[in-house]
Amino acid sequence: MYKSIIFDIGGVLVDFDPKAYLVDRLCNAEMEEKVYDLTFGSEEWQLLDAGKLSRYDGNQRMLEHARAEGCAFEVQGVLDDWMHILRPRLRMLELVRRLKNHGYCVYYLSNIPQDVLELLTERGVLAQFDGGVASCEVQVNKPDPQIYKALLKKYQLKASECVFIDDRLENVQAAFALGFAGIQMKDSVGTLIRSLATCNVTLR
């Protein structure tokens, strides 16, 4: 029987689609790919998530690479503006509330830098959760098994009693390999609820 439901944050609890954002912002396929590789897809972004680089230092490194590529203006604009895409998904937060009301424990497990974690906490996005682990706190990113184990250890959870939800398949597969039930978040909340029902997690 599953007792705990574990949610990713970006792409699950809040909107986070950087490629769509760059399409809207730049309207140039070649530039979109270049800017993505210099920002969201960069090594610096991974280090930010892992709490191994400050936002200031990360941005400076990304801008240095962007100057070498001749697109510092575009990258600076993205770095100044991108956080507005982090819009809470109200139907997902309502699902979290309903799960809690039905007796399930709810946690988050996310690749997220410190400043974004603080922003979402201030906005109350994580207020309903029983706890969670952020990559910036443990300096490990999904899909490294150690971040999943950190969550299990912190809250004395059993993987076999947990359902993990993430929008990235590799993260779901890593959880599954450790004994979690895994669901890839693909589209609607309704589809997710039906997937949870296949794990006998019901809201009736």
Rank of each mutant, 00 (worst) to 15 (best):
R61W: 08
M62I: 13
M62F: 10
L63Q: 11
L63I: 03
E64L: 10
E64R: 13
E64N: 14
R67L: 08
R67Q: 12
A68N: 14
A68K: 15
A68G: 15
G70I: 14
G70L: 04
C71P: 02
C71T: 15
A72R: 09
A72T: 03
A72E: 14
F73H: 12
E74T: 04
V75F: 04
Q76P: 08
Q76I: 00
Q76H: 12
V78F: 00
L79A: 10
L79I: 07
L79F: 04
W82R: 05
W82L: 03
M83S: 15
H84R: 15
I85R: 04
L86F: 02
R87T: 14
R87V: 14
L90H: 05
L90N: 10
R91T: 15
R91S: 15
M92L: 09
M92A: 05
L93K: 03
L93E: 03
L93H: 06
E94R: 09
E94P: 02
L95D: 00
V96W: 01
R97Y: 13
R98D: 09
L99A: 09
H102F: 07
H102R: 14
G103M: 03
G103T: 13
Y104M: 05
C105F: 11
C105G: 14
Y107N: 09
Y107I: 12
Y108C: 01
Y108A: 01
Y108G: 01
S110G: 06
S110M: 03
S110D: 03
N111M: 07
I112V: 11
I112R: 04
P113N: 14
P113V: 05
Q114N: 12
D115L: 04
V116H: 02
V116T: 12
L119N: 02
L119V: 00
L119Y: 09
L119T: 01
L120K: 05
T121S: 12
T121W: 09
E122A: 08
G124F: 07
V125S: 00
V125E: 00
A127H: 13
A127N: 10
A127R: 14
Q128F: 06
Q128G: 08
F129S: 01
D130R: 04
D130M: 04
G131R: 07
